[in-house]
């Protein structure tokens, strides 16, 4: 049995300014820059890590949240293994938009079984004192939408960032183990089938 490819594509979605790039930067480089530029289009970073004894390469895709960059980001949803839906706890609108982000992702990623796809929800900026979204509200939304894991993170003080990504990896691996039993990936394809004798003689 050959080892399965261990490159996992994780995509960060959510409104502009909720801190997607900061979360990625915190996780990969362990740095925080309060004055980061807006992301344009799509960017990614790789991070090697070990989860439950398995060596994986996490490919984290950071996207531009602004509406005007929609056409630049959507082509790259395809092939994602996990989607991190992100909002900011000090911005109610970004929370309300989670549903739209989910819909956009499912549509463009062309997910076969959306109900089984691993989503993880991140409520960022918990270091901010004036919250607009309560923890309960968020957890309820996750519950109702498909029992998604929910993490309250802070890219600024590194709260829960690594935990959230590790959870994402676990979800993907669990997902794969289930599918592996169903479909063998090493299929044989016949490119040029010789015609059968019947058509030949007709």
């Amino acid at each position: 049995m050959t080892t399965k490819t261990s490159l996992l594509k994780v995509i960060l979605l959510g409104d502009g300014g909720v801190g997607k790039s900061s979360i990625m930067n915190r996780y990969v480089t362990n740095k925080f820059d309060a004055h980061l530029f807006h992301t344009i289009g799509v960017e990614f970073l790789n991070k090697d890590l070990e989860v439950d004894g398995r060596q994986v390469t996490l490919q984290i895709w950071d996207t531009a949240g602004q509406e005007r960059f929609r056409s630049l980001r959507t082509p790259f949803y395809r092939g994602s293994d996990c989607c991190l839906l992100t909002f900011s706890v000090d911005d109610n609108q970004s929370f309300l938009n989670l549903g739209n982000w989910k819909k956009e992702f499912i549509y463009y990623a062309d997910v076969k079984e959306p109900e089984k796809f691993p989503f993880v929800v991140l409520g960022n900026k918990v270091d901010v004192t004036e919250r607009q979204v309560s923890s309960e509200e968020a957890q309820q939304w996750c519950q109702e939408n498909g029992d998604y894991p929910y993490y309250e993170t802070s890219a600024k003080d590194a709260t829960n960032v690594a935990v959230a990504f590790e959870e994402a990896v676990r979800r993907v691996l669990a997902m794969e183990e289930r599918t592996d039993h169903l479909i063998p990936t090493d299929t044989v394809k016949l490119h040029r089938k010789p015609r059968s004798a019947a058509t030949c003689c007709s």
């Binding site: 990969v28 480089t29 344009i40 289009g41 799509v42 960017e43 990614f44 970073l45 790789n46 895709w61 950071d62 056409s71 630049l72 082509p75 790259f76």
Partner: peptide, 14 residues
């Protein structure tokens, strides 16, 4: 290695 990498579609120049 940790620098961010831009990704775009063919023809989509910014």
């Amino acid at each position: 290695e940790k620098a961010r990498v831009g990704v775009r579609l063919l023809g989509h120049l910014l």
